[in-house]
């Protein structure tokens, strides 16, 4: 059974054909970093405009690469939130039009559920497992008891970890995207040279990365002759220590022996290294999906959509996107 997935939640236009929720037949992602590098961040209107230009070519390419025709597609799965509203609108509008014209069932997928589903395109972790989704827009921990059964354990109360990376990178004079630049120069710095505060929020599984951004700013103001490598290294270790400590604490408290890392920040080399060490110390089975499946892509949306479709959870043409769409939280 083939599902066409479409994701336009942020800066990438992506389309993918996935078989039976697990086998990627095609997965096209139009990386738009070349546009965003010039503007220092995810620029929403530019992103929307690029999505309009790219949505047809990207979907066409995904179908062509899969050797599929619309009559072969069982359902179209589209991200309807959370994300940039102007960007989401393009994907949802396009998916509805295709579904209507070709009389294909339509399925709505929460982008965060898509992230969690990505691991199944490569591996078969047993249930339950702990999922850490960490990117420019999200930093959340979930307990996953089965496909479709998610419980939010914690989330950021202010900035996402990737957002802190981007803002600190800008502060240090690096261009977008900030994460890889910090990761690169941090390797040359001394992580012990500057001790930035770790926000553990005792007794809570939530995160806060706004204070570290302010701490870096204060440090830069007071030390104009600063060494960027040391700042990057100190900042990075403060962020990743909190991420690793919190996710492994959660696994212990929930008595769960499996952790899966997702999102753009999970490509960070220092985070991967520390997480691997911790998992091995704690006897945790760690899953690190490939980078191209950790970052935004439509294969994960198609995979999640497959399960909605087989359970008969369909969307109709009144489907609208929503920027704010928590997954598995008490209020969601």
């Amino acid at each position: 059974m083939l599902i066409l997935g479409i994701d336009t939640s942020c800066d990438d236009t992506s389309a993918s054909v996935v078989e039976d929720g697990a086998k990627i037949i095609s997965n096209i992602v139009s990386s738009q970093d070349d546009i965003h590098r010039k503007y220092g961040g995810v620029v929403p209107e530019l992103a929307s405009r690029r999505h309009i230009e790219l949505i047809w070519p990207v979907v066409h390419e995904a179908m062509h690469a899969a050797g599929a025709k619309f009559k072969d597609i069982s359902a179209i799965a589209v991200t309807n939130g959370p994300g940039l509203i102007g960007s989401l609108l393009i994907g949802v509008g396009f998916a509805k039009a295709i579904a209507y014209v070709h009389k294909i069932p339509l399925v709505a997928v929460n982008h965060l559920e898509g992230h969690i589903q990505a691991v199944f395109l490569e591996a078969r972790p047993g249930f339950p497992f702990i999922a850490l989704v960490v990117s420019g827009g999200h930093t959340s921990i979930y307990r996953v008891d089965d496909i479709g059964i998610y419980k939010e354990i914690g989330r950021t109360l202010d900035d996402a970890a990737g957002e802190a990376y981007d803002k600190v990178a800008k502060l240090l004079g690096f261009s977008y995207p900030g994460g890889p630049a910090i990761d690169r120069i941090a390797a040359k710095g001394d992580a012990e040279a500057i001790n930035f505060p770790r926000a553990y929020l005792k007794g809570s599984h939530d995160f806060s990365f706004s204070g570290i951004k302010t701490a870096v700013l204060n440090y830069v103001r007071k030390n104009p002759d600063n060494k960027k490598e040391d700042i990057a290294a100190g900042f990075q270790s403060a962020v990743i220590e909190v991420l690793v400590d919190k996710v492994s604490d959660t696994a212990k408290k929930e008595n769960i022996g499996r952790i899966v890392l997702y999102g753009g920040v999970s490509a960070n080399s220092a985070l991967r290294k520390l997480m691997k060490k911790r998992a091995s110390d704690d006897g945790i089975e760690l899953f690190l999906p490939s980078t191209h499946l950790c970052t935004d892509n439509a294969a994960m949306i198609a995979a999640a959509g497959f399960h909605h479709y087989t359970k008969g959870i369909l969307a109709d043409y009144s489907l609208n996107p929503s920027a704010y769409m928590p997954l598995g939280s008490a209020d969601g």
């Binding site: 942020c10 509203i85 109360l157 202010d158």
Partner: peptide, 17 residues
């Protein structure tokens, strides 16, 4: 509004509650 639900809007630009 639960202040826990208010996070940075730099990513989504406009958040509606």
């Amino acid at each position: 509004i639960d202040e826990r639900d208010i996070t940075s809007a730099s990513f989504t630009i406009i958040a509606e509650y």
